[in-house]
Amino acid sequence: MSFSSQTAITKMRAMYGKMLKEAEYLNILNCNKIEEVIDFLKNNTHYKNSFNILEKSEITEDLLEDLIKREAFLNYKKIYRYANKNKVIEFFIKHIEIDEILKIMLIITGNENKRYLVDLPQYLVSKCKIKLFNLVNVKTFDDLLETLKNTKYEKLLLDFKQKNKEINYLKFEHILYEKFFKELLKTVKAKTKNVELFELNKLIKTKIDNINLCYIYREKTIFKTDSKKIKENIFNFHKNLTPNRLEKILASADSSQLEENFKEIYKNIKNFKLKKIEKYAEKTEFLVCQHYINLSLNLTTVFYCFYILQQIEIKNLIHIIEGIRYNLKKEEIKNYLTI
């Protein structure tokens, strides 16, 4: 392992050590107002660096979420310079590109009534292959096509436009991520070997399994979607969700049968309840990442875990902020957290 990899791993572990622990989450949960959350994060956590650029009175509720995300991006900056030639880690930038394109798609499809603004740090904007600032003037799908001209997304968008008369956000999201995961797994296979390959495959496929299972759960129980249609939107990479198991799950006649079939995948969870599937999925990923960030000797694995754990922390904080905003009970908010 190279010296720079060791440095980056140590840095990530140190930053992971500063991440919020259960006791800190409980302290934040004790806050009754958003101002108290801001105060706590500003004075007692690693978010103080990002929060200190503004006065307490200047931090609004909307800005709070942005500042939390900003801290995560600043953390990536600290390690990205050690790993900018790593082909697997480059997918982190691709993931950000997809997220930005999806943000604008949400606006185009009318799912979100918000103006698109780039809120990424400058170092990330410069790393992206697409000109993010040009997206600020995009209002229609054709504008988007024009802006993404001569990028690898152009062909995807054109194909999508030809095949679909109506722009469906979920379909578009599926296509983007299908390609993303396909390329990621291909690169992992090509650029890594032995333990590193095993670890990354396990981590990525666990994520894909979780996305698929949560999707199946939602479609089968809430929207009562046809199995054939569900299958179309399933990512065709798996770890525990083998084709046989998938068939079995899709063939479930009712919720109890679905629950029994899901139990086979989440064997380690006692008192499995189907409605908690999203929480189990995130918790499984959280535990795997916690395991590898502590024990893995491979930069890519540790970076992946660090990235996922940061994302989970951001989600947890957003759950708390929204919970407090909507006056939810402490216990209720706690149920949404992955800790």
Binding site: I53, L117, V118, D119, L120, P121, Q122, V125, F133, N134, V136, N137
Partner: peptide, 27 residues
């Protein structure tokens, strides 16, 4: 924030002008 200033710079056909006066590392 400087990122948002860059957003402003790229915006076209808007009903406002932004006249920058000063800047530092963050703002």
């Amino acid at each position: 924030l400087k990122t948002n200033y860059l957003n402003l710079k790229h915006m076209k056909n808007e009903d406002f002008f932004f006249i920058p006066q000063d800047e530092d590392e963050e703002f």
